[in-house]
Amino acid sequence: MYNEKVMDHFQNPRNVGEMNSPSGVGEVGNMKCGDIMKIYIKVKDDVIEDIKFLTFGCGAAIASSSVLTEMVKGKTLQEAEAITNQRVADELEGLPPAKLHCSNLAADALHNAIEDYKSRAASN
């Protein structure tokens, strides 16, 4: 059902866990199946220095979060904002069609985290 790369990220997820004093947090719930994904970012000089995730969801959701953290770490905010769910799915070398919405979750959570960072920065 899932390819090797998805299974690798599912079995050995990168950057799992909570983050102490993050610069931004994004959380999205999946209206479709009820899953919840949370992304924490630490930003310095417009660069995402660190990123962590927590996911309550299926194998594709866990793998999407994991691969997303790898794609984003060390990237500028601008680069990170350009990441779409399609790119997450491509990075995983494909997801079953019924599971594409799980990669949405990852991209959306990241964008929310960036927005959260920006609104915090603006109010400082």
């Binding site: 997820p13 799992v16 927590l54 996911t55 309550f56």
Partner: peptide, 9 residues
């Protein structure tokens, strides 16, 4: 293991 990565745990 899964609870450790769960956002609702």
């Amino acid at each position: 293991r899964l609870r450790k990565m769960s956002s609702v745990f």
